[in-house]
């Protein structure tokens, strides 16, 4: 069984999340534990899929991941945005529209066998917009004189934003990169960038979870 280096970061952040679950719950971030569990399972299966199932690619795994993880992420944003009922209703309908598109794309447009690029782009854009929204709101709402840098939600969204800015390009061009064997430092450009981006994302998450715990105990 193969295990890529960024998966250690991923697993580490899951372990930290479990250890700091009380802290996460106090910030309404408990949903991140199932998200990280799903991430870990997806990556472990995805990395070894071709070898175990003798398949040419592992796109199926990631397509299913998008279908399953998007509602969880939307729930996470809803709890981080802490909007009023009207705003939550808006976010709910936006989420339903996004999920519907993902399912339609999965079943009818790009299909199960091909990597769902449109879904990756849509999810990337949604992540960028929503994380920017959370960050902006956080900065405006912080009128109690508390430090933004000490807020775990700030770090989680900052890392999601930066990760999405990288992934939207790389995943959007995934087919082109793999067909043309575009490499960076003797490694596929996709792996080179996504592994680094994932490592940064999960390191950020781990830091944020530790902040949850320390802020809670304060």
């Amino acid at each position: 069984m193969q295990f890529l280096y960024f998966q250690y970061f991923q697993l580490f952040s899951l372990l930290i999340a479990i250890v700091c679950r009380k802290g996460l719950n106090s910030f309404s971030l408990g949903i991140l534990i199932p998200i990280l569990l799903l991430d870990n399972v997806t990556e472990t299966v995805g990395v070894n899929y071709t070898r175990i199932f003798h398949s040419l690619d592992n796109y199926f795994v990631y397509n299913v991941y998008y279908v399953l993880s998007t509602p969880l992420y939307l729930y996470l944003y809803a709890s981080m945005l802490k909007g009023d009922r009207r705003e939550q209703r808006r976010l709910f309908f936006t989420g339903v529209a996004i999920e519907t598109f993902i399912l339609v794309n999965y079943f009818f447009i790009q299909g199960r066998a091909e990597f769902n690029t449109f879904t990756a782009l849509l999810v990337g854009v949604a992540n960028i917009v929503l994380s920017c929204l959370v960050l902006t709101r956080l900065a405006i709402r912080k009128d109690d004189g508390s430090n933004l840098v000490l807020d775990p939600i700030f770090w989680i969204n900052a890392m999601i934003l930066l990760f999405s800015l990288v992934s939207i390009i790389v995943l959007g061009m995934l087919k082109y990169i793999s067909l043309n064997h575009i490499q960076f430092g003797r490694k596929s450009l996709y792996f080179a960038l996504m592994e680094a981006a994932n490592a940064a994302l999960y390191t950020g998450y781990s830091g944020a979870f530790l902040l949850c715990q320390t802020q809670r105990s304060k």
Binding site: C132, L135, T136, K142, D143, G145, V149, L161, L162
Partner: peptide
């Protein structure tokens, strides 16, 4: 470039928060 703008945005928010504090 995208990362630069992303980081710039985050730094600007932090600075805004810092000024408010």
């Amino acid at each position: 470039v995208l990362l630069f703008f992303g980081v710039l945005f985050i730094v600007m928010l932090w600075y805004y928060n810092y000024r408010r504090r």
